[in-house]
Computed example of a mutant assay.
Amino acid sequence: MPLTDAKVRNAKPSAKPVKLSDSAGMYLMVTPAGGKCWRLKYRFNGKEKTLALGMYPEVTLGDAREKRDAARKLLANDIDPGEQKKNRRAAASLASANTFESIALEWHEKFKHEWTEEHATRLLNRLKANAFPWIGARPITEIEAPDILSIMNRAEKRSLEVAHRVKTCCGQIFRYAIATGRAKRNPIPDLQGALPRVKNKHYAAPTDPKTVGPMLRAFEDYDGSAIVKAALLLAPLLFVRPGELRAAEWSEIDLDAAEWNIPAERMKMRVVHLVPLSSQTIEILKGLQPLTGRGRYVFTSHRSPLRCMSENAVNAALRRMGFERDEITGHGFRATARTILDEILGFRPDIIEHQLAHKVKDPNGRAYNRTAHIETRRKMMQTWADYLDELKAAGT
């Protein structure tokens, strides 16, 4: 007799598994522990097989019979329902392993050694904020251009530049997925023209000596953190990139040799960079040693001595002193130095560019190494520091 809901509900376990037959090969297996499992016995290519149909009560008697009938239809079409179930599970597992987020994290892990730590962190945070919440869990093969456009539009509400960067990052991930056999096409080219262009912006920077002097005097009068003040004083003297400055480590600095050797992994161009230190720079660093010299970082975070200063510390200090974004930014000191060193102090542009850690080649097409023209650069950095002192003293 076929089973009834009451028989299934009231079935009791015993010392050994008990089979309660329904019809057409389906039965309920009651385990000694009290579990109730639906099973279907069938034959395929002369072999007897068993198909699991689910657990009671999650799968009711009616649900189990529907699954049984669906399996028998497959058998009628010479399809093994057990194998089909395995294939579906394998496909689901593959899709789960090939989600956009999983491939993006794999791509990030593979290539992060080619980026600075700051850039790698920024990329990952950008994905976490702008992509993963909406498309991260989806198989990458199912993601089309409108899906990417959707997350770009969300990002555009905060920043058009971020939206473009999200698009670029997604394109790199899709290309990696194609190369590794997890995707067949990259939808990013379909989005050409979907966003307005970003107008190129130059970092705000004073290039008139008359405005540089008052700025330097304001730095001397800064009444905030001594560590931030030191960073403010050193930023125009060294004119390195803000990320290079705030992550400076004491192990990289040789005060006796008056040199700061920045390793390649922290440089934008992935090439070691040597910064000659003026006497003024050394004096500031020596003053900072009692505060941070026992730790790793020259400019430690106010939250933890194990971390370097935050990305926004210098710019926040500038704003606190009343300097607007269109007047000066942490990155703008590089433009200040580049302009004045060339136009007023008369140093060769290629020497300046090399000290800025830009790609520079000699007349024979060879890239300069980190020690190229080092004596000229030592002289330039000291001349620059002395000139800044002159500007600072001019209004006192």
Rank of each mutant, 00 (worst) to 15 (best):
A91Y: 03
A76W: 07
A145R: 02
K112S: 09
A95T: 07
D78S: 11
A155K: 02
I148E: 01
Q84G: 05
N125G: 12
K128G: 12
C169E: 12
R158P: 01
A90L: 14
E144K: 11
I103M: 08
G82H: 04
E142T: 10
E118M: 01
R165L: 02
I143A: 05
D78V: 08
T116D: 06
I103S: 06
A90R: 10
D63H: 15
D80V: 00
I148N: 00
E66R: 15
A137T: 13
A64W: 04
R122D: 12
E156F: 00
T116L: 07
W115F: 08
R165F: 06
A92R: 14
K73E: 05
H108P: 04
I148D: 00
E142W: 03
E161Q: 12
P133D: 15
N77A: 11
L123K: 07
L160C: 08
S159K: 10
N153I: 08
R158W: 01
L75F: 11
I143Y: 07
E117M: 07
P133E: 15
G136F: 01
L123E: 08
R89K: 14
I79T: 05
Q84S: 06
K67I: 00
A76Q: 11
A90W: 04
N153G: 09
A71N: 02
R65M: 06
A145M: 02
K67C: 01
D147E: 13
K86R: 15
T121W: 01
F111R: 10
A163R: 00
A155R: 00
I151S: 00
T116N: 14
R89S: 09
K112C: 05
E118N: 13
D69P: 07
R165G: 04
R88C: 00
A97G: 09
H108R: 01
S150E: 14
T168W: 07
T99K: 07
A64G: 03
A120N: 15
Q84W: 02
W107G: 06
L127V: 12
D78N: 14
D63M: 07
D78R: 14
A76I: 05
S102L: 06
A95N: 14
L94D: 09
I143V: 09
S102P: 02
N87I: 11
D80L: 01
I135E: 09
P81R: 06
G82N: 12
V162Q: 15
Q84L: 10
H164D: 03
D63W: 15
K128F: 09
A71P: 05
T116W: 06
S102T: 12
E66C: 04
S159Y: 03
W134V: 06
R165Q: 08
R68W: 02
I143F: 10
R68N: 05
A97H: 14
C170Q: 03
